[in-house]
Amino acid sequence: TFTSYQLEELEKVFQKTHYPDVYAREQLAMRTDLTEARVQVWFQNRRA
């Protein structure tokens, strides 16, 4: 599960791009204290 802060950050990036590159995902992962893999999976699920 994600915190409301994490979801907010993820959604913010999703609004800009549905396909963030690895750099964007790593920045987001650091900001949200998630792994890059978790961020990647979240985007895959969000796009589905």
Score class of each variant (00 low, 15 high):
29 A>M: 10
45 N>S: 10
40 Q>N: 15
19 Y>M: 04
39 V>Y: 01
36 E>Q: 07
47 R>M: 05
13 V>F: 09
32 T>I: 15
15 Q>L: 12
15 Q>V: 07
38 R>C: 14
2 F>L: 13
21 D>G: 08
30 M>F: 10
17 T>Y: 07
20 P>R: 01
14 F>W: 15
21 D>W: 02
44 Q>W: 07
29 A>I: 07
18 H>G: 04
45 N>D: 14
24 A>E: 15
12 K>N: 06
25 R>M: 15
40 Q>L: 14
32 T>R: 00
26 E>A: 12
34 L>I: 05
30 M>W: 08
30 M>I: 12
17 T>K: 04
6 Q>T: 03
47 R>N: 06
44 Q>D: 09
18 H>I: 08
25 R>E: 03
47 R>Y: 03
17 T>M: 09
4 S>P: 14
23 Y>D: 09
45 N>V: 11
20 P>V: 03
22 V>L: 15
5 Y>A: 07
6 Q>K: 01
22 V>T: 13
25 R>G: 02
41 V>K: 14
43 F>K: 00
22 V>Q: 15
40 Q>T: 11
16 K>N: 09
8 E>Q: 11
4 S>Q: 14
38 R>D: 15
41 V>I: 14
42 W>S: 15
42 W>M: 09
8 E>A: 13
25 R>L: 15
14 F>I: 15
8 E>D: 15
29 A>R: 06
10 L>I: 01
47 R>W: 04
47 R>D: 02
45 N>L: 11
37 A>I: 10
36 E>R: 05
35 T>N: 07
1 T>M: 13
25 R>S: 04
33 D>V: 05
1 T>G: 13
14 F>E: 00
3 T>F: 05
13 V>L: 15
31 R>C: 05
20 P>W: 02
35 T>M: 04
5 Y>Q: 08
21 D>C: 06
6 Q>Y: 02
13 V>Y: 09
12 K>E: 10
18 H>K: 11
5 Y>L: 09
7 L>D: 04
48 A>W: 08
42 W>H: 01
40 Q>H: 13
38 R>Y: 08
18 H>C: 09
35 T>I: 04
29 A>Q: 06
48 A>M: 13
23 Y>H: 12
9 E>H: 06
21 D>E: 14
43 F>C: 03
17 T>H: 07
40 Q>R: 14
26 E>N: 12
32 T>E: 01
5 Y>S: 07
24 A>K: 05
16 K>Q: 13
10 L>F: 04
27 Q>P: 14
20 P>N: 01
6 Q>G: 01
47 R>H: 04
31 R>K: 11
18 H>D: 05
35 T>L: 05
27 Q>L: 12
33 D>N: 15
13 V>S: 06
30 M>G: 09
4 S>V: 13
36 E>T: 08
30 M>V: 10
44 Q>T: 08
21 D>Y: 02
36 E>M: 14
6 Q>S: 02
36 E>K: 05
42 W>K: 00
12 K>R: 11
39 V>C: 01
38 R>Q: 15
12 K>T: 06
43 F>D: 01
14 F>K: 00
27 Q>G: 06
5 Y>R: 09
9 E>I: 06
24 A>Y: 06
12 K>C: 06
3 T>M: 05
42 W>E: 01
35 T>W: 03
48 A>F: 08
33 D>Q: 13
19 Y>N: 06
34 L>Q: 03
33 D>F: 10
47 R>I: 08
14 F>S: 00
38 R>T: 15
43 F>M: 04
38 R>S: 12
35 T>H: 04
48 A>E: 11
31 R>V: 09
18 H>E: 07
25 R>K: 04
44 Q>H: 10
42 W>Q: 00
13 V>A: 13
32 T>H: 03
6 Q>W: 02
12 K>L: 08
26 E>G: 08
35 T>C: 04
20 P>E: 01
23 Y>V: 14
21 D>A: 05
33 D>K: 11
42 W>N: 00
1 T>K: 10
47 R>E: 03
3 T>D: 05
3 T>A: 06
42 W>D: 01
39 V>A: 01
43 F>N: 00
4 S>K: 14
